[in-house]
Each structure stands twice: as structure tokens, then as C-alpha cells.
Amino acid sequence: HNLTITQGKLFFHYNPKLCLSEIHKMEEVSGTKGRQERNDIALKTNGDQASCENELLKFSYIRTSFDKILLRWEPYWPPDFRDLLGFMLFYKEAPYQNVTEFDGQDACGSNSWTVVDIDPPLRSNDPKSQNHPGWLMRGLKPWTQYAIFVKTLVTFSDERRTYGAKSDIIYVQTDATNPSVPLDPISVSNSSSQIILKWKPPSDPNGNITHYLVFWERQAEDSELFELDYCLKGLKLPSRTWSPPFESEDSQKHNQSEYEDSAGECCSCPKTDSQILKELEESSFRKTFEDYLHNVVFVPRKTSSGTGAEDPRPSRKRRSLGDVGNVTVAVPTVAAFPNTSSTSVPTSPEEHRPFEKVVNKESLVISGLRHFTGYRIELQACNQDTPEERCSVAAYVSARTMPEAKADDIVGPVTHEIFENNVVHLMWQEPKEPNGLIVLYEVSYRRYGDEELHLCVSRKHFALERGCRLRGLSPGNYSVRIRATSLAGNGSWTEPTYFYVTDYLDVPSNIA
């Protein structure tokens, strides 16, 4: 807008934040220059609390790290170098490059900038070799853009010569660093050979998330399962459950009422301010606690030095998902009996873990797994792929695949051998790939016309006998059925096997 004052003059007093240069501009645009008398524009009460600059400061050096910015700028000295009290560095987070010096300023003089007072450097006698002032900004957020400017702080001049310097606002972004852990990993099994893994992005990506790394490792069953005799009275049979499938998407929606109208769909109840505040506090606490764990609990591995020492970490090797089922080394339970199943799973520490690289999504279907087997899954978020990966501390989750139908069934015939004193040795093959492992066998036998009897055969007993022995049988026709019990439950009964026990007292003698 054009402003013209045809008559009258300007009068400025007691404006401590208004620089004289701005008042002189007002004289020019209003056409009143030359009308004012000496005392109409006070030299001592206008701009006496402001830094009124008329020179431009330029930054000469900028260096960044993930949490620091090192700045240096060209030296500046007023005509009387004693008038320079120091520099004021202003900075704040700036997602967009549209910041002005006066953003967030209120009537009390406060604003949204963080201000650092910096002492002037030592003055050199040689004007050509003056030290460049600077400042190291610490405690910054990774991968965050900051708006920065600097200006001088000078003393009051009796001659009211307006001098000083100020830089333009520059924008500097800190470097990326390792992201925080992925949030809320959930693993479920939808079949006997697959596990579905879902997660949420890290709360602090500290860069642009480029991919996720998912490692999985087959877990050995508890050692007590191999040692305890679950045929003993009072000892509860062990059981394991597989990871249940995901709930429906509708039930997972946030901010939804727990109660549904019987007449149909209901609208979600909005969260109160107290609920939102509580969630923010919980989120802040979780982030602080995660940072504490990362800094205190997890110790970084030592990389190899120039002395030739090897990095103890196993090298990563990509495998196809079809090879995942046989990740671990199978060892027989008892070496003397080769027909026992290889369900003991000690994992070799030198073995390469299978892994998958996930790009542009937060889910993965891990296939080719062994049925009813526990897996430990390790999830890392990465925001750099080359020249070397920059990934987060791992988040861990466990899951067990679903049982395989008929995996616990005894394959092959049940054979028998009759000894003296009416002892019958029953023999059968253990299931080759049971659900988890076989903890015991149930032997059901009966003599024709009598009630059915049951015998429990422990895992250890089966390994020693290759089956079991029935003792003290009365003469007669017998039928026997056997079924295995694994961590997933009972298998199917075998087809009945028949044998006849004679009275050993009636056996004919070869003595003449």
C-alpha cells in the first residue's frame, strides 16, 4: 500500500525493539523526510534493546553428524571492536523451508527459537588472519532439518551509529543413524509349514526405512522333555500350542467401542483428552525405555581390526524358502538304536541362519518350516543398504507352526516275539517326523474274553527296548493296539495285532 503524509511529521519514542533503520525507511515511504526535528525521533529510546544489523554474515563451514552440527561463519568486528559482546545463534526444527525470524513471537518477546549466546573469538592483530567464530550444536535429532541463523550482539553506541551483522536463515539436516526397533511384532501360524509375521514401523526411523531383515531359527525343545518319565503317576503330560491366527481386521481397528449394538453396526467412541494424553505418555515412556535398553543392555560386537582377528559373527547367506525346513542338525536320541526319531534339535552355532529381506511392506510369510516346531524370529529395521547396512537392534518374537495331521501315527506293522515265561516283546517304529517329539506310547492289549488293559511306555523305555515287553501273560489269544502321544496330543491307534500265548508248562520236552 502507498502511504503519503502531505502535512505533519513523524514522532517515535520509547520503541526499544524498533531499529532506527526501520524508522528511516518509514520517513522515505511516507514522504516526511526532512520535516522531523532532532528530538522527534529519539536516538536513545528507539532500538536500544534490539540488534540492528546492516551487514550480512556468511557461514564459512558446515559439518553434520547424526546428532551434531558444527558451524563456522566469517569474522565480524565493528569499528570499535570492544562493542562486540558476542553472537546469538538461533535454531529450531523446520520440516519445511518457510521459516521466518519472527515465527511464534508474542507480545512478551518470546519466540519459538532456541538461542545460544556465543563469546567472540580472540581478536588477531592481523586483519587478514582473524579467527572464524563458530559453535557445535549438540543433542539434535537424527535425520531432522533445522533452520539456523546467527547475528551479532553489540553494545549501545553513544554516537548512535547503527552497526551489526546478521546471516540469512539456512537449512541444515542432520545425518541418518540406526533406527529404533520395529514396533509390535506379531507372529502367527496359518499352516503346519508357515508363519505369518506382521509389525509396525519404528517410532524413530532416523532416516528413510529402506528394508527390513527377518531372521528365523528353529528352537530346540526343553531338555526336561527328553529326561522326564511322563508315565509316572502324578506327572502331567506336557503340551505345546501353536500360535493362533490373526483376529479379523475389524476387531483390530483402534479407537473402536468394545460393545456392539445388537441391531447392527455401531460407531466408534472418540477417545477423551485424558485417554489420548495417557497414550502419549505411555508411548514416550516406551521410547525412553527402549533407548535405555539399547544403550545399557546391548553391547556392540567388536569388529575385526587390522591384526587379522576374525569377526566372530557368522556370515549372512541367503537361502531359498524351500530350504528352511531342514535348518537344524538332527541327532538321534540314543545312538545305539537307529530307529528312534531325530527330534532332539541342538543347533550348531556355526550354522548360517536363513533370512529374508523385506522391502516396502511390514509383513512376511515364512514358508518351508517344520510342522509343530518353535521358531525364534528376529526382526531388524534398516535405513541404508549400501555401502553397508545400517540397521536397528533386533526385536524378537516366537511362534510355533501348526501340527501336521497323521504325523504322530505309527507307520509300519507292530511285530512281536514270544519268549519263555510268557513274555512277549512288542516292537514298532517311532514316527519319523512327529509333531514336536514323542513323549510316550500307549499300549492297549486284551486277552479274548477279558477286559482291555493299558500300559504306558516312556520315551526312554522305548529307546532301550525298541518297544516294550509284556510279562506274566496268561495263555490265550491276544490283540494289541499302540498309539503315540506327542507334544500336540495323541496320534491314531494302530491296526490290531494278534498273537497267541501258550502255557509254557505244557511245552513238550526233548528229553527222552
Rank of each mutant, 00 (worst) to 15 (best):
F355A: 13
G322K: 06
S458N: 06
Y504A: 08
N339A: 09
Y212K: 00
S363W: 10
D204T: 03
I418K: 06
F215I: 10
E451S: 15
Y396L: 10
L379M: 08
M427D: 03
G374I: 10
E430W: 03
Q380F: 15
Y375L: 06
R390Q: 07
V501N: 06
E389K: 15
D250V: 07
R240C: 14
S479F: 03
F355C: 13
H211D: 00
T343V: 07
R286F: 12
V214R: 00
K302Q: 11
L237F: 06
N255W: 15
A394L: 08
W242Q: 11
K302D: 15
F372P: 00
L225D: 04
H371P: 09
T328Y: 14
S251H: 15
F499T: 01
S398N: 06
F226P: 09
T340C: 05
I209S: 08
Y375Q: 02
S284I: 01
E378W: 09
R400Q: 04
E389H: 12
S243V: 08
R218I: 09
S304P: 10
D311P: 07
Y448G: 00
S320N: 11
P403R: 07
C391E: 02
L455P: 01
Q252L: 13
L237S: 06
E310S: 13
L232M: 09
E356S: 07
L455I: 08
F372A: 11
Y500M: 05
P205L: 14
G264P: 04
L213M: 14
S342E: 06
D385T: 02
D273Q: 13
F289M: 06
E433Q: 07
S348E: 11
D273G: 06
V296H: 09
W242H: 11
C468I: 07
E388A: 07
N383P: 02
A263C: 07
N206P: 03
D229W: 04
R218D: 05
N435H: 01
V411I: 06
L437E: 06
E258F: 14
K302E: 14
G264Q: 02
D311M: 11
L237T: 07
S509T: 13
C231L: 02
H425F: 15
P338A: 09
S274R: 12
H294A: 15
A220G: 14
I276N: 13
G472M: 10
T307W: 09
P431N: 03
D409F: 11
G264F: 03
E279R: 12
S315W: 12
E451M: 14
I438G: 01
A330L: 02
R400V: 09
S315F: 12
I377Y: 08
S486T: 11
T272N: 11
G322Q: 05
A399T: 08
R240N: 13
Y441C: 02
T343W: 11
H454A: 04
T373K: 11
P314E: 14
R286E: 14
L487T: 07
V297I: 11
T373C: 02
Y212S: 03
T333G: 14
S248V: 10
T497L: 11
V423Y: 10
V480A: 05
E388F: 06
D222I: 10
D385N: 07
A220S: 12
A488Y: 15
V457K: 05
K236Y: 15
G489Y: 11
N490T: 13
L225R: 09
T343N: 10
N383L: 08
E279H: 12
H371R: 13
L426F: 03
N208L: 07
S305Q: 13
H294V: 08
T241F: 14
N421F: 04
S284Y: 01
Y504V: 12
L464R: 11
V480G: 01
A463D: 13
W242P: 10
P338Q: 12
A381L: 02
Y498F: 08
Q252E: 14
S251K: 14
Q256F: 10
E258S: 11
F215D: 10
S341K: 07
E389C: 06
R376M: 02
Y375V: 10
S243T: 07
V393E: 15
I377M: 09
G374R: 05
V501A: 04
Q219F: 13
V443Q: 00
V424C: 08
G368H: 04
D503P: 15
S257F: 14
V414E: 01
N435S: 03
N326V: 04
P496C: 15
E495H: 15
E282W: 15
P205K: 00
G449T: 12
H416L: 09
H425D: 04
S262W: 03
I209E: 08
D250M: 12
P431W: 00
D408R: 00
T340H: 04
W493E: 02
R286Y: 09
R447S: 08
F285T: 04
F337E: 10
S251D: 12
A463F: 12
T373A: 05
L280V: 14
E217L: 14
L235F: 08
D409A: 05
G322A: 13
